[in-house]
Design a protein around this nucleic acid. Sequence first.
DNA 1: CGATTTTGACCTGCGC
DNA 2: GCGCAGGTCAAAATCG
Length: 338
Amino acid sequence: MSAGAGAGGHGGGLYGDPAAADHFAAFDHDDFFFQRSPCAGEGGGGDGLMTPYSSITDYLQGFLDPAGLAAHLDAPCRSGDDAVKQGMEAVPVRLVRHDGQAGAPVTPNSSVLSSSSCEAGGADEEPRRRRKAGRPEEEEEEGEQEEIDADEGSAADRNCKQRGKEKKARGEKKPREPRVAFMTKSEVDQLEDGYRWRKYGQKAVKNSSYPRSYYRCTAARCGVKKRVERSHQDPSTVITTYEGQHTHPSPASLLIRGGGGAYAAPARLGFRSDLRAMIDYAHATRVTPGSLLLPPAAGGMLPPTPRLLQEHRHSSSHLAAYGGVLDFIPSEMGSEHA
DNA sequence: CGATTTTGACCTGCGC
DNA sequence: GCGCAGGTCAAAATCG
C-alpha cells in the first residue's frame, strides 16, 4: 500500500472538540431522539414517527429533490454563531451552498470528485514526507524528495501536489471532504453499511472512555473514510461519520433496491453525492426513522423538514451547515412534532 | 499467503 | 514557540 498523504490531521475534530462536545451535551435528552417506530420496512407507515415521511429513506429522498434542496439551501448559512461555526468548519462551504458562490457544480464525477481524488484519494497515495527511523534510504533523499516526487509522478499527481503547494503558499486550507454522521443505537460498533472497510487506525478520544476507530473503503481508488466511535454520553449509541464519496456503488444497496429506486435517484441527479452515503446507509442497514437518531449540530445530521427550514431559515442558531446538509437542534424537532 | 487488525510513532493544525 | 489532540502511517501480529 502506498503511503498516504498528508491528509494529515486537520485537528479540531468534531466530537473531540470541546465546543462541539458542549453542543452535543446540551441536547442529549430523550426528546432528542425520534420516537421508536413500529414500522419494519421502508414502506411502513410508522405510527410513532415524528415525521411525515414513511421512512428515513423517504426523508432523505425528499431532501435530495433538486428544487427542494435549492430552496432549503437558500436559507442563510451565517457563521456568526460560535457553535454553528464549529460545525460548519467541518465542511467546505462551497459544497453546502447552491447560490452560485460554490463555484463548480457538485457532481460525483466532476469538481468534487476530481478534487477529492487528489485530496482524499490521490493525496492519500502520496508518500509521507517523513517516516519512522529504520528507513534510512528515504531519510537520505528526503531533502529532495518532494521535487523528485513532482518529477516522477503522473501529471495528475503533479497537479495535485502543485496545487497543494500553491494553496499552502497562499495560506489556503485544504478543503475537507464532506461528512455525514449517524448516531445509531447499536451494541456492535461496526454497522453493516454495504461497503467493505479496512481499519487503519484507532485513537483514544479525549473526554471519552471509548476509542475512535478509523476505516477506509477497501475499494480501489475509493478514498472514502469513516470513523466509528461510541458516544461517551450514551454508550449504547454508535456514532459513524462518513467522509468523502464512494466512487463505486454499494453492493448492498444495489441488491436491496435492484439498482434502481431511491438509491439510483441521487446518482441520476448527479450532485450532492455525499448524501448518497446516507442513502446507502439507510438502505444497507434498513434503518427507519425510529432507529436513526437525530444528532446534534456538532456531530451528526438529518435532513430537516421543509416546514422547519421555513420556520428557522433566518436563524443560524437553529440551522447549521454540516456535511453538506443542514441539521438543526433536536429540541426544535421535538417541539415540531409534539 | 493475502487480507485485515493492532498499535506505537509520527505529522499537522490549533489554541494558548 | 510549545503543547495538545486528532488523524494517519506502516511494521508486526493475527485471521481466514
